[in-house]
């Protein structure tokens, strides 16, 4: 079979398998990015407004995650996460369960993303003029409403470029799950390539798919940033 036939959708071709791998990659990236955002929001608020112990613990978390390769964190967390959940279940008298690679992948990449998101969002929250937050507090606005109405809308513009970067890192980090044997796009590609020996065809096709995700994401985040910056005075010469 030649190049394009190998990529055909139907059984002898690998199109459907690649598409399934792509879908898994995107879903894991979405899940990990969302989890990372949640951790990041908590972490950023903890670092800015938390007590001294919270701040120190968060500093340890972000430092360790940013100094140790993702691959090793994935391995450690992958094993630690699945075995500790099983230990908990056994301790409570439940059956041991098989944790799907999908959930474990999201959890692990989410923890990694959370460390970076903490730093991005912390910087973004700091960019909101302090006077506004103080004014809202002085008016007796409850903290959640303050975050929702004053901090979030204004920090968004400053946070979007960093978050866009994080999202691109998330999509590319899903490839690392191939090393622990999860069949996302990169692993499926490698399986297809080593079965058919058409290495260039498959790796380039997969590269093209990743590139499409990244180009599409850049466009979408550009739109979101423009929306988040609406009403801001544009600076000269930018």
């Amino acid at each position: 079979m030649s190049g394009l036939e190998l990529l055909a959708w139907e059984a002898p071709g690998w199109g459907a398998a690649l598409a399934a791998g792509l879908l898994k990659s995107v879903l894991i990236a979405l899940g990990a990015f969302s989890l990372g955002l949640l951790i990041g929001i908590g972490g950023a608020y903890g670092k800015l407004y938390g007590g001294p112990v919270t701040r120190d613990l968060l500093a340890v978390y972000t430092t360790i995650v940013r100094a140790v390769p993702e691959l090793i964190l994935i391995l450690i967390l992958y094993f630690a996460f699945t075995s500790s959940i099983n230990n908990l279940l056994l301790a409570w008298g439940f059956e041991r369960i098989q944790i799907s690679g999908f959930v474990a992948g999201i959890a692990v990449l989410g923890v990694v993303q959370g460390a970076y998101a903490t730093e991005v969002l912390r910087g973004a929250i700091l960019s909101v003029p302090a006077g506004q937050i103080e004014a809202a507090r002085a008016m007796g606005m409850p903290p959640l409403m303050l975050a929702w109405r004053v901090t979030f809308p204004q920090m968004l513009a400053a946070a979007i470029p960093g978050l866009a970067n994080l999202w691109l890192i998330a999509t590319k980090d899903t490839a690392l799950l191939a090393v622990v044997g999860y069949a996302e796009l990169t692993l499926v590609t490698r399986q297809a390539a080593s079965t058919t020996k058409a290495f260039f065809t498959f790796f380039m096709a997969a590269g093209l798919l990743y590139l499409c995700i990244s180009i599409l994401s850049t466009l979408i985040f550009g739109r979101i940033e423009a929306w988040a910056r609406r009403g801001q005075v544009r600076q000269e010469g930018r």
Partner: peptide
């Protein structure tokens, strides 16, 4: 730069190793 930054390093590595290695 866009190509390198837009695709996973693992994929680039495997493309070069398995691709060139088989060529």
């Amino acid at each position: 730069c866009g190509l390198i930054r837009g695709t996973p390093l693992l994929l680039q590595l495997w493309l070069l190793y398995y691709g060139l290695g088989s060529l």
